[in-house]
Amino acid sequence: MNENKILVKNFLEDTGVIDLQIRLVAGESGIEKEIRVGDINRPGLTLAGFYDFFAYDRIQVFGLGESAYLRQLSNGQKRHVLEKFFSYDVLCCIFTHNEEPDRMFLEFADAKGVPVFITRKDTTRFTSSLVYLLNEAFAPTVTLHGTFTDVYGIGVLLIGKSGVGKSECALELVERGHRFIADDVVIVKRIDESILMGGGSPMLKYHMEIRGLGIINVKDIFGIRSVRDRKRVELVVLLEEWVQNKEYDRLGLEETTYPLLDIQVPSIMVPVRPGRNIPIIVETAALNQRLKKLGIYTARDLDRDIQDSLMKEKANG
């Protein structure tokens, strides 16, 4: 998808979240290049002459070691090394510790259109920030039709057919002091093997459609404390119209989950019918989810107590 292309330019100059503290020193013509791989490479071995497995299409991070190696080479050797290095279609190079590459390096980079950056950060710190940003940028993403809220610190994703009352439920939750994140368009990213991060579309930020009212801006009406930009998705609440004779969970002994980007998210199914107070059910579900995170499973505990007392009665009788 065109919009989702990650270019060297927008990624390394404006990261939004973390300041990578980098500046461009050469190869400006290559700044529109696309970053296709979410990995980085330390080119130490390559510079020393070992070109097998050279991941030239990744971001090349030059640490103190690489800089020192280049510095101790004679001009002739250096030219030889750089000629070979830049004969590959290198994506971009970043020097850490504020180490400035020498003129020959910059000339090669300019000639080949390979952007060269310098960061003030040390290699480990820089690498970890960069990997974090790359993970975010390359995270598998899905856009869902739902409503996303932060209820007592739990990211609750409401899913259901249009007209079932997701937006109204979110509005009532906001009124009760919880936070609104996104309505109708929820973008969920898998930023780690077990972590899903949800947020809204930047264009629709804080807006919500309520039938009969039209489009409202939650932040303008309820204030800054009523919204947040993103949150981990920890509970999915499936809202569906009450189906006569359908068996709904009455005990809560079984844990149900909802699959999102191959992660099983705890879920509950809440049947909706007129007059039923859904927001308080969502609030309670969020609190119950917090209890479960602490290892407290009410239904199971009660069941165990009942079984214990039944056993005792049997023994006494």
Binding site: H145, S162, G163, D184, S201, L204, H207, M208, E209, I215
Partner: peptide, 10 residues
């Protein structure tokens, strides 16, 4: 979702 205005605008 074609039945959601925010979704279409988005």
């Amino acid at each position: 979702d074609c039945k959601s205005i925010m979704s279409v605008l988005g």
